[in-house]
Design a binder for these strands. Structure first.
Lengths: 81, 81
DNA sequence: TTTCCATATCATACTAGTATACTAGCATTA
DNA sequence: TAATGCTAGTATACTAGTATGATATGGAAA
């Protein structure tokens, strides 16, 4: 999608963390920002081999959510984190 | 929030557009990616001074959504795009 | 006046959380 | 050995919350 390329370009243009935060706060709702941040935590903990139940408890998330993250991981996403 | 800092760090680590796309595809659902891409389009067109109803028609979005984007713009977000 | 913007309301779609069930592997125990 | 219990991963049905789209209305600016 063409619009996605522009989005990616915008992300790549952010040179400082402050710029990135400003951009994220604009483009995402507070709830979305929180959710997406948590998804990253899920993936990181999954990569570390932490059991799904433990992740769910620590992050206050549902097991189903962790399983969804696990599926994304297996599909080859997150090669670079 | 601590998790948000890690998210920002992850975004900053992406060195190529391919990495960024891989990351976004993992951390966002297809629907979210589409929505967020469109939000960026909305802001860009608003900045260009295009009437809201024109934007709505071109992007297939509702007027209320454009107005919400306009509000974000006025609140000082998107200083860097 | 006419165009444009902002807001409210309602219905819809999507995601997360919860509960539950199923399977597999492993250790313990009768 | 066979049965039981526990942990872990996965899948599914249901509910709640949230963002969007459509629409109507009121107000502001040209």
């Amino acid at each position: 999608m063409e619009n996605q390329n522009e989005l990616i370009g915008a992300f790549m243009q952010m040179k400082t963390k402050e710029q990135m935060l400003n951009f994220l706060n604009g483009i995402l709702t507070p709830k979305e920002l929180e959710e997406i941040s948590r998804r990253l935590q899920i993936v990181k903990m999954l990569k570390r081999g932490i059991p799904q139940h433990t992740i769910a408890k620590k992050l206050g998330a549902g097991v189903a959510t962790i399983t969804r993250g696990s599926r994304e991981l297996k599909m080859g996403r997150f090669k670079y984190i």
